[in-house]
Design a binder for these strands. Structure first.
Lengths: 135, 135
DNA sequence: GCGAACCTACGACAGATGTAGTAGGCTAGG
DNA sequence: CCTAGCCTACTACATCTGTCGTAGGTTCGC
């Protein structure tokens, strides 16, 4: 439904993540969260991030007390989905399967993760079988 | 081994792709290939892309005849690998499994692709079994 | 030998992004 | 009340990227 997911810079995304993970917060708080994640920037820099995110429609600012409190207006899923799609498009011509293969070949998985993936893929396969033969 | 994979802009990546896919080429040829992919830009723009890619160490220019011929110096795998890693890091804190799950839930796969993925994942699982129990 | 065609080196420029300083306003404690 | 602190609105600026135009050298056909 939402018209379009705007492009976000790396720092902007990082900022948004602090809101998804820690809930609504003031500039000061966001700054602390960013610092914990290793991004140590000036107070006004954080304000800039938040302001730009607001212009892009990704966060909302509510006056509470003396300071504004910012909260995410787009879900993590939406952003993640669009970024992943973007990557798939750029690197694999839009085909997801090659990316999955790539990941299976170049990244490592714990036994648990592997089992989960197996289960998931089996489910997908079953769904498809159930749909195709059509009786 | 290579020190580092430099950051590439979207257009730069697109340009590199034409070299991977079609082999070494002149500015003129690269321009045509880009046009076919829907990116219609001026001759000098392509030259700029190629020049920047050269500065970043991604392509090499050989004087052949009157015009330079550019060829990729980094493999597609290296670039793809680093981009994927980057994405995984930014969106999933570096864990590949969640991305695979995400893809399985939000993207679609043909029966063939599904089968291939299944095979692949089973292989991985088998490998792990064989390594863990140790006899 | 000349002009047309082509080639590359530079310089430019706008927009996006990361980063920060300044200035002026509001708040709360004394 | 008045001051010390905190808050936000602006402005600024460097870099990176995508896009070109101009200018000057090279080549090739005639």
């Amino acid at each position: 439904m939402p018209p379009r997911v705007p492009d976000l810079g790396e720092a902007e995304l990082e900022t948004l993540k602090t809101l998804w993970d820690g809930g609504p917060a003031t500039v000061r708080e966001v700054r602390q969260r960013l610092a914990q994640r290793g991004r140590k920037v000036a107070h006004t820099t954080v304000l800039t991030f938040l302001t730009r995110l607001e212009q892009k429609g990704c966060v909302r600012a509510d006056k509470t007390g003396h300071a504004y409190r910012y909260r995410a207006r787009v879900s993590r899923d939406r952003i993640v989905g669009s970024r992943v799609r973007e990557t798939v498009k750029q690197l694999f011509d839009g085909a997801a399967a090659p990316l999955v293969l790539h990941l299976m070949e170049h990244e490592s998985f714990s036994p648990d993760e592997l089992a989960a993936l197996q289960r998931h893929i089996d489910d997908l396969a079953r769904q498809q079988e159930g749909r195709r033969p059509r009786r």
